[in-house]
Simulated scan of single mutants.
Amino acid sequence: MLVDGEVFRTLLGSGAQSALPAEPEREADPKLTLGRLLKEGGMRRKPERLYRLFGEEVSLEALRALPAFQRFEAELAEAIRAVARSQGWPR
Protein backbone atom coordinates (compact mmCIF):
# COMPACT_ATOMS: atom_id res chain seq x y z
CA MET A 1 0.00 0.00 0.00
CA LEU A 2 2.95 2.31 0.48
CA VAL A 3 4.43 1.89 -2.97
CA ASP A 4 2.02 3.69 -5.33
CA GLY A 5 1.73 7.45 -4.90
CA GLU A 6 -1.03 7.56 -7.50
CA VAL A 7 -3.42 5.76 -5.14
CA PHE A 8 -2.73 8.40 -2.50
CA ARG A 9 -3.47 11.15 -5.02
CA THR A 10 -6.75 9.38 -5.89
CA LEU A 11 -7.73 9.38 -2.22
CA LEU A 12 -6.38 12.73 -1.14
CA GLY A 13 -6.60 14.78 -4.31
CA SER A 14 -4.14 15.79 -6.95
CA GLY A 15 -2.34 18.14 -4.57
CA ALA A 16 -1.49 15.38 -2.11
CA GLN A 17 2.18 15.45 -1.27
CA SER A 18 2.41 12.18 0.63
CA ALA A 19 5.96 11.36 1.57
CA LEU A 20 5.91 7.67 0.76
CA PRO A 21 8.83 5.74 2.19
CA ALA A 22 11.69 5.18 -0.23
CA GLU A 23 11.86 1.53 0.86
CA PRO A 24 8.33 0.50 1.89
CA GLU A 25 9.39 -3.06 2.73
CA ARG A 26 11.66 -1.71 5.46
CA GLU A 27 8.81 -0.04 7.35
CA ALA A 28 8.61 -1.60 10.81
CA ASP A 29 4.87 -0.89 11.08
CA PRO A 30 3.47 -0.21 7.60
CA LYS A 31 -0.12 0.10 8.88
CA LEU A 32 0.97 2.84 11.27
CA THR A 33 2.83 4.60 8.44
CA LEU A 34 -0.24 4.33 6.20
CA GLY A 35 -2.47 5.79 8.90
CA ARG A 36 -0.06 8.67 9.48
CA LEU A 37 0.20 9.49 5.77
CA LEU A 38 -3.57 9.43 5.31
CA LYS A 39 -4.12 11.59 8.40
CA GLU A 40 -1.51 14.09 7.21
CA GLY A 41 -3.35 14.22 3.89
CA GLY A 42 -6.63 15.05 5.60
CA MET A 43 -8.26 11.62 5.42
CA ARG A 44 -10.69 11.05 8.27
CA ARG A 45 -11.62 7.43 7.51
CA LYS A 46 -9.82 4.61 9.25
CA PRO A 47 -7.11 3.11 7.02
CA GLU A 48 -8.66 -0.36 7.38
CA ARG A 49 -11.67 0.87 5.40
CA LEU A 50 -9.39 1.69 2.47
CA TYR A 51 -7.46 -1.57 2.08
CA ARG A 52 -9.75 -2.79 -0.68
CA LEU A 53 -9.29 0.43 -2.65
CA PHE A 54 -5.52 0.13 -2.36
CA GLY A 55 -5.67 -3.47 -3.52
CA GLU A 56 -7.79 -2.57 -6.52
CA GLU A 57 -5.89 0.55 -7.51
CA VAL A 58 -2.21 -0.20 -6.89
CA SER A 59 -0.36 -0.57 -10.17
CA LEU A 60 1.53 -3.72 -11.05
CA GLU A 61 4.38 -1.54 -12.26
CA ALA A 62 4.72 -0.02 -8.78
CA LEU A 63 4.51 -3.44 -7.11
CA ARG A 64 7.16 -4.85 -9.43
CA ALA A 65 9.64 -2.38 -7.93
CA LEU A 66 9.45 -4.31 -4.65
CA PRO A 67 11.81 -7.27 -4.18
CA ALA A 68 9.18 -9.26 -2.26
CA PHE A 69 6.68 -8.85 -5.10
CA GLN A 70 9.31 -9.83 -7.64
CA ARG A 71 9.91 -13.06 -5.70
CA PHE A 72 6.18 -13.68 -5.36
CA GLU A 73 5.62 -13.18 -9.08
CA ALA A 74 8.51 -15.49 -10.02
CA GLU A 75 7.31 -18.19 -7.60
CA LEU A 76 3.74 -17.90 -8.90
CA ALA A 77 4.89 -18.19 -12.52
CA GLU A 78 6.95 -21.28 -11.67
CA ALA A 79 4.00 -22.87 -9.84
CA ILE A 80 1.78 -22.28 -12.88
CA ARG A 81 4.41 -23.82 -15.16
CA ALA A 82 4.69 -26.84 -12.84
CA VAL A 83 0.92 -27.38 -12.87
CA ALA A 84 0.87 -27.03 -16.65
CA ARG A 85 3.71 -29.57 -17.02
CA SER A 86 1.90 -32.01 -14.73
CA GLN A 87 -1.12 -31.73 -17.00
CA GLY A 88 0.94 -32.48 -20.10
CA TRP A 89 1.25 -28.90 -21.39
CA PRO A 90 2.43 -27.78 -23.85
CA ARG A 91 0.95 -30.25 -26.26
Rank of each mutant, 00 (worst) to 15 (best):
M1I: 01
L2K: 01
L2M: 11
V3Y: 03
D4W: 00
D4N: 09
D4S: 02
G5I: 05
G5A: 15
E6V: 13
E6A: 15
V7G: 06
R9Q: 10
R9A: 09
R9S: 04
T10V: 15
T10D: 14
T10E: 15
L11E: 11
L11T: 01
L11D: 12
L11S: 13
L11H: 05
L12C: 07
L12F: 07
G13S: 08
G13R: 13
G13P: 07
S14F: 07
G15W: 08
G15M: 08
G15I: 06
S18N: 10
S18K: 11
S18M: 08
A19W: 02
L20F: 05
A22T: 11
E23Y: 12
E23C: 08
P24N: 02
R26P: 00
R26Y: 02
E27T: 13
A28W: 05
A28V: 15
A28M: 07
D29E: 12
D29S: 09
P30S: 06
P30G: 03
K31D: 12
K31L: 13
L32S: 09
L32I: 12
L32F: 09
T33W: 06
T33M: 03
G35E: 05
G35P: 07
L37R: 03
L37A: 03
L38M: 03
L38N: 04
L38P: 07
K39M: 01
E40N: 07
E40R: 12
E40C: 07
E40P: 02
G41H: 00
G42C: 11
R44C: 03
R44S: 15
R45E: 15
R45L: 14
R45D: 14
R45G: 06
R45P: 06
R45M: 13
K46F: 10
P47R: 06
E48F: 09
R49P: 03
L50P: 00
Y51V: 14
R52Y: 10
L53D: 11
G55D: 03
G55S: 01
G55L: 01
E56I: 07
E56Y: 03
E56R: 06
V58R: 02
V58G: 03
V58K: 01
S59H: 13
L60C: 07
L60P: 00
E61C: 10
E61T: 15
A62Y: 00
A62Q: 09
A62H: 03
A62D: 04
R64H: 08
A65Y: 06
A65S: 14
L66K: 04
L66Q: 05
Q70E: 04
Q70D: 02
R71T: 11
F72R: 04
A74V: 04
A74Q: 05
A74T: 07
E75N: 09
L76K: 04
A77N: 04
E78H: 05
E78F: 01
E78Q: 12
E78N: 09
I80L: 14
I80S: 09
I80H: 10
I80V: 15
R81M: 12
R81L: 13
A82P: 09
V83H: 13
V83K: 15
A84S: 12
R85F: 14
R85Y: 10
S86D: 08
Q87T: 05
Q87Y: 10
P90T: 12
P90A: 08
R91Y: 11
